[in-house]
Design a protein around this nucleic acid. Structure first.
Length: 473
DNA sequence: ATGTCC
């Protein structure tokens, strides 16, 4: 496999073999994996073989190895030209995403004396870790089905939030087309008790402060200034989404042959979007997406109660965005407007100014793009820009450079906590093993990832946020 | 990511 440097921030994998389109990697030499034989870049090339794929198999600056598709991958298929949908292009944690809340009445210096008690309270009320119960244990399947169909909108209707929250959610907090019948009994069982919980791995709830503004004219309407206190919530659809992915990968693996589809990796199981199996997956995926959005909404309410009680401040939602999702979108390809199934796996949608799906009061600046770093490092707010070449997508995080296993091999989670606290970041963890797996050294440099995202023409940096305290899944 | 393998 040959990597061609098109510009310092854009690399091309030329078509070979069964590839239908080239691979395009937005990165810098310093972020690019050791080119030949790299697993993530091989996955970029594998994705390029999928039926109906258009333009290119894209990789974002945080690309790394994943299940079938790379994490940090974007692939769009033309649904009227045999285009497929692949659960591997969404990921196991369907609708995993980020929301950012802004504290209205307390800046960093005002909050400082109360940070310890605040983190203690957050640590007490935010459910996290494997197999945890959520803050809203659903009484029965009927209510769960309402979550699957209504997402964050249903949560707000039930009193868990305010209407303004929905104006700042992707798709106003709910995607149409959920099909609870395509969600297995086992997925439902797993989903009943976990709504309003972080989970584990890289998921977190973090108290942050704006440390630097890159673009004041965009930061101002977003409500961000140096010293502004924020809460970032990163979580997904827990066991429900995981089970849906597992179920539908299995079904697609069996059905693929009937559609004459052959892929270079069985983890790329896929079927045409316009097929019974494809529609079933998308209906179940939308249900999980709505569950993930309701999950973040419930955790928002838990954080709000703590901030109001402990610091006397209200939390306003800046934006909520998923970075693991496939969406049917209209895009112009080769001069023709087409309906595409855009897979974003570890990639953030980033709509430009004046796009109709950007919240009305932010339409002049573009969609907020939320990019968390790893525990103890910075996170970023960016804004979508016109001319994004990857179906309006950009990076989603720092991106791993070490596997979980390698990260934890010679590291004690206590040492990770101590190092963070010595830098003034309060840590409320879930497991020592988990902290070791998430040590900052296991990830790429988030400053580099976001700088390259900007230089590659994917988005523009607005603000850099630093952590004050982290509740870790 | 995940009742870290039905």
């Amino acid at each position: 496999m040959r990597i061609v440097e098109e510009t310092p921030y854009r690399f091309r994998i030329d078509r070979t073999g069964a590839m239908r389109v080239p691979g395009i990697v937005f990165a810098a030499r310093s972020l690019l994996p050791a080119a030949e034989g790299d697993e993530a870049l091989t996955q970029v090339a594998n994705v390029a073989t999928l039926p109906g794929i258009v333009t290119a198999s894209f990789a974002m600056p945080d690309v790394h190895w994943g299940y079938g598709f790379p994490i940090g991958g974007v692939a769009a298929t033309d649904i009227d030209d045999g285009g497929v949908v692949s659960p591997g292009g969404v990921g196991f944690d369907i609708s995993c995403g980020v929301r950012l809340l802004i504290a209205r009445d307390a800046d960093r210096s005002a909050l400082a004396p109360r940070l310890g008690p605040l983190m203690d309270r957050l640590g007490h009320v935010v459910p996290r870790g494997m197999q945890t119960r959520g803050v809203w244990e659903l009484p029965n399947r009927t209510v769960l089905h309402e979550v699957l169909e209504g997402g964050a909108r249903f949560a707000v209707q039930q009193g868990h939030g305010v209407v303004r929250d929905l104006e700042r959610c992707e798709d106003r907090g709910v995607l149409d087309g959920a099909d609870p019948a395509a969600v297995s009994d086992r997925a439902v069982e797993r989903g009943l008790g976990q709504l309003g919980s972080l989970g584990s791995g890289n998921h977190f709830l973090e108290v942050q402060a704006v440390e630097r503004i890159f673009d004041p004219d965009t930061a101002r309407p977003m409500g961000l200034d140096v010293g502004t206190v924020c809460v970032m919530i990163h979580c997904g659809s827990r066991g429900l989404g995981h089970q849906i992915c597992t179920d539908h990968v299995r079904e697609m693996g069996k059905a693929m042959g009937r559609y004459g589809i052959h892929v270079p990796d069985r983890q790329l199981a896929c079927v045409p979007v316009r097929s019974p199996e494809g529609e079933a997956y998308l209906g179940a995926m939308v249900a999980a997406a709505n569950y993930g959005r309701a999950n973040r909404q419930l955790l928002t309410e838990a954080a709000r109660r703590v901030f109001e009680d402990t610091a006397g401040t209200t939390l306003d939602l800046l934006y909520d965005i998923s970075h693991n999702l496939a969406k049917l979108e209209r895009h112009e390809v080769d001069g023709r407007l087409r309906t595409l199934c855009v897979h974003r796996k570890g990639a953030t949608r980033s709509l430009p100014p004046r796009h109709p799906d950007v919240p009305a009061d932010l339409v002049d600046v573009g969609q907020p793009v939320l990019i968390p770093g790893t525990m103890g490092t910075a996170s970023y707010v960016l804004a979508g820009i016109a001319g994004n070449p990857a179906f309006y997508s950009t990076a989603h995080g720092a991106g791993r450079v070490q596997s979980r296993h390698r990260a934890a091999r010679h590291t004690d989670g206590r040492a990770v906590r101590d190092a963070l606290e010595s830098h003034g970041v309060l840590v409320r963890g879930s497991s020592w093993r988990g902290l070791a797996e998430e040590k900052p050294q296991a990830y790429k440099d988030i400053d580099a990832v976001t700088e390259v995202s900007e230089r590659a023409g994917l988005a523009r940096r607005v603000a850099r946020l630093v952590p004050l305290g982290v509740v870790k899944g």
